[in-house]
Design a binder for these strands. Structure first.
Lengths: 340, 340
DNA sequence: TGGTCTATCGTTAGCGCTAACAGGATCCGG
DNA sequence: CCGGATCCTGTTAGCGCTAACGATAGACCA
């Protein structure tokens, strides 16, 4: 069907020949250089369209020393948050004419990270976005001392590595404030791993809000983000029965708690109120539907892309770095039960 | 710290000078050409190590006309299945020395698809893996008439587009056979959208297994994969009370059904048995823990990568294309309740 | 009218690499 | 001791593009 001539893809030269100009003029048209007359410009554009010319990225990269590629270093890509952040990055990247190359890692070992980083730099990535929200990662990255722009999703801004983030502390405070407003006084927290930046930030938010209300922050248990850990912790909490409300650091663990409570005959929200974090699509269909804190991961990804583009292109402008989370009240929270 | 001289990255020439050979010999060492003496090879390798030389991908691509990049076209990347498939692809790719570039699309419009494809080909991808399990996608892709290897995840093998797949029909039959073995005779099915290849295949499996057992296949309702659709359908089914068991085409919808049934006072599994599909990590913590069909998405991704590599490198060998699913029995299925 | 300036276009070189060929050394059988 | 085969290495050209500079023509002012 496609009448392919000898040469596979047309080159600048071919377009130039057809438009009766030099290949350099064609290059100028493509790159929107100013000094091209309207007449030749349209003649060239016609030739480009006729031949279906597409610029060869490798050749361009070779001379410009830019690959127009953003490397994304990610772990836990199977999870809702990271996957959607990647989605946001990708969308913003494509709109800006960048390619997105990914390197996934399992765990957060120094070698795994440096291997992945090397993989991305081997490809000549112009910048790197890191979606590995583990404390250790930041250290490893700093030690690698890379000479390309690096943006860390959820980066704290401390050290050299900056990034965009959802205001985790605020999210936690929203959740706790909601519980307090319902009259709860014993408010526990099932946290994520404390060596994850987000996990720690949510603990801090929980603490601060409690402190301001003069409430105790003793009921803290550390989970590992998984529903399984939520389940095990839920079983413990069910035994103790010390809290009337629990702020859980993500929706999966909240699901685990829900099941553990259900098995022990503890009703949610009648006996204990529960607030999660993330607002995955499924959370609205838990039993009961989960009150939780929504994070806009896609927006987060977009902001990161904007940031790194600003760094690469040396553009001073850049949008807000902090995305605001939002409390979504559903049916897993209720006023504090009367002490009986 | 890093004593960076004038030139940013060392080139072949620099290595050659240090090792006192020609740049071509260095190239031979890097590419493992046979005709290099052991002495010079080790001398070159030492020089490479000393300078920290890394081959320039753009330059190599320019001359070899290979980018060592696999483009992944994906939709629904936020979902468990696609995200984990991507993970598998990425792992296998990195091991094989390939880069993975992604293009995500929303929906399955012809324009969105062709834009994404163009984006990937613009980068010079050597091959493309498509994780858009929508019927229409296949047609659009065929019409684009691409001249690079394309592998479709879950591809049926019909038409020109081949791919690796999990045996969906088998998975459905496993689920239904399990229900039949428990004595159920009215076995309904909540399917995915019927214009999705996987959705249709699971319907077929459900039908076939029922037919072999001489049971009716009238109880079919079409969902849209979301928990919300499962919830709405569950409400309907609760009214009808015609089935004693339901095979649901994915775990999210099963979650929706679970909640609808719970609200209507229908107990699972005492009144109705439920089987899902996918086995997401959370499914073990549903109430009750969900019996479901496990798919190994990562393995699927790996197989696809193997396949496309074989096509690119013109290697005849290739592993099995069909990944076997596996029934995971938990607590959402029980023997048929005695008719009362 | 002549000179300078500007807008437009062409020519040349080179980014870093691999393919293709060329050349020298070594080895072997006759 | 010589011809060719074999192994190793170097030289040359070119992949497709952009940057830098050169060249030309018209505009504009003194």
């Amino acid at each position: 069907m496609g009448n392919s001539n000898d040469r596979r893809q047309p080159r600048l030269e071919d377009v130039a020949a057809l438009a009766k100009v030099s290949h350099q003029t064609v290059s100028r048209v493509i790159n929107n250089h100013p000094n091209v007359s309207t007449a030749t410009r349209s003649r060239v554009e016609a030739a480009i369209a006729e031949l279906g010319y597409r610029r060869n990225t490798a050749a361009r990269s070779l001379v410009t020393r830019r690959t127009q590629t953003i490397g994304v270093l990610a772990s836990e890509l199977g999870q809702y948050g990271p996957a959607n952040t990647l989605l946001g990055v990708q969308q913003a990247a494509r709109e800006a004419g960048y390619f997105v190359s990914i390197a996934a890692i399992k765990g957060a070992g120094a070698k795994a990270i440096s291997d992945a980083v090397r993989h991305l730099t081997d490809q000549g990535a112009d910048g790197m976005i890191v979606i590995v929200p583990h404390d250790g990662t930041l250290q490893v990255l700093e030690d690698l001392n890379l000479d390309l722009p690096v943006i860390v999703v959820g980066g704290t801004g401390e050290g050299r590595l900056s990034g965009a983030m959802v205001d985790q502390k605020l999210g936690a405070r929203l959740a706790v404030a909601h519980l307090i407003s319902l009259g709860h006084q014993q408010i526990g927290h099932v946290s994520g791993p404390l060596d994850w930046v987000d996990g720690k930030a949510r603990v801090d938010g929980w603490r601060e809000e409690l402190a301001e209300a003069g409430l105790s922050d003793e009921l803290l248990v550390e989970g590992d983000w998984s529903a399984g850990s939520g389940y095990r912790i839920g079983q413990q909490l069910a035994e103790q029965r010390s809290a009337t409300a629990v702020f859980v650091s993500n929706d999966q663990m909240a699901l685990g708690l829900l099941r553990a409570f259900g098995e022990k005959g503890i009703r949610v929200p009648e006996d204990v109120s529960l607030v999660g974090f993330d607002d995955q699509p499924e959370s609205a269909y838990f039993m009961p539907p989960l009150t939780t804190v929504r994070q806009d991961f896609e927006e987060l990804g977009k902001r990161c892309m904007d940031l790194i583009r600003a760094q690469i292109e040396d553009d001073a402008t850049s949008g807000a770095l902090v995305v605001k989370p939002e409390l979504v009240v559903r049916a897993s929270t209720a006023p504090r039960p009367l002490p009986s």
